[in-house]
Simulated assay, not measured.
Amino acid sequence: MTTSLSRRATLLAALCIPLPALAAAPTQVTLHKSPQCSCCEDYAAYLRRNGFAVEVQPTHDLATMSREAGVPEEMDGCHLAMIDGYVVEGHVPVEAIRRLLAERPPLRAITLPGMPPGSPGMAGRKREPFTVHAVARDGGTSVYMTI
């Protein structure tokens, strides 16, 4: 009799413990990049290490895709990622992406133009703070955050 009660108590206790498998699924990312770019692969690995599920899609039409996504040419980064309805252009630090996804502002994109040394996925040392820009739905740009 005691054994049967112990088993029931153990089973009930186990049902009350949240299982990691039931936790929220990782945010999906589709990262479009030039086929020969290795720093984009490093950025995809950086996102994976930070809990994102990343699918990499090589393309020769990155500039066209960026224009179609509403990112002005002067805001171009090294690659274009689609994350939960937003465009993330370039080597944007995960802090900016997490803020974007938490706040859900009415933006089209965030971008870290160019390929700054020391940014996620890029070699070298960070020389100055990274300025992440916001691209509004009307195409206007502003500083989103400095990291």
Results as ranks from 00 to 15, higher is better:
residue 101 L to D: 04
residue 139 G to S: 10
residue 71 V to K: 09
residue 143 V to N: 06
residue 57 Q to N: 04
residue 14 A to T: 10
residue 16 C to H: 11
residue 73 E to M: 06
residue 44 A to V: 05
residue 71 V to Q: 08
residue 81 A to C: 09
residue 72 P to Y: 02
residue 52 F to W: 07
residue 104 R to Y: 00
residue 127 R to P: 03
residue 141 T to A: 10
residue 105 P to Y: 01
residue 79 H to W: 00
residue 101 L to G: 07
residue 138 D to T: 11
residue 31 L to P: 12
residue 132 V to S: 11
residue 136 A to C: 07
residue 107 L to T: 07
residue 121 G to I: 00
residue 82 M to C: 03
residue 65 M to S: 03
residue 93 P to I: 03
residue 1 M to F: 06
residue 11 L to E: 13
residue 92 V to I: 09
residue 78 C to Y: 09
residue 139 G to H: 06
residue 113 P to I: 02
residue 1 M to R: 12
residue 121 G to W: 00
residue 113 P to H: 04
residue 77 G to F: 00
residue 4 S to Y: 02
residue 27 T to K: 15
residue 19 L to K: 13
residue 129 P to E: 04
residue 124 G to R: 11
residue 138 D to L: 12
residue 24 A to S: 15
residue 140 G to P: 03
residue 33 K to V: 01
residue 127 R to K: 15
residue 14 A to G: 12
residue 142 S to C: 08
residue 134 A to M: 05
residue 38 S to Y: 02
residue 65 M to P: 01
residue 117 P to M: 08
residue 83 I to C: 14
residue 87 V to G: 10
residue 82 M to H: 14
residue 89 E to N: 11
residue 83 I to E: 13
residue 21 A to P: 00
residue 54 V to F: 02
residue 130 F to T: 07
residue 119 S to E: 04
residue 14 A to V: 07
residue 76 D to F: 11
residue 55 E to N: 09
residue 97 I to A: 11
residue 106 P to E: 09
residue 106 P to L: 05
residue 16 C to A: 15
residue 47 L to F: 02
residue 42 D to I: 00
residue 16 C to N: 14
residue 10 T to M: 03
residue 29 V to L: 03
residue 44 A to G: 14
residue 67 R to K: 14
residue 107 L to H: 07
residue 115 M to V: 03
residue 125 R to G: 12
residue 136 A to S: 13
residue 14 A to E: 13
residue 45 A to L: 08
residue 129 P to W: 04
residue 81 A to R: 06
residue 54 V to R: 07
residue 25 A to G: 11
residue 99 R to Y: 02
residue 89 E to I: 05
residue 124 G to D: 11
residue 113 P to L: 01
residue 120 P to N: 08
residue 139 G to N: 11
residue 51 G to S: 04
residue 31 L to G: 13
residue 16 C to V: 05
residue 117 P to Y: 02
residue 53 A to R: 11
residue 146 T to W: 00
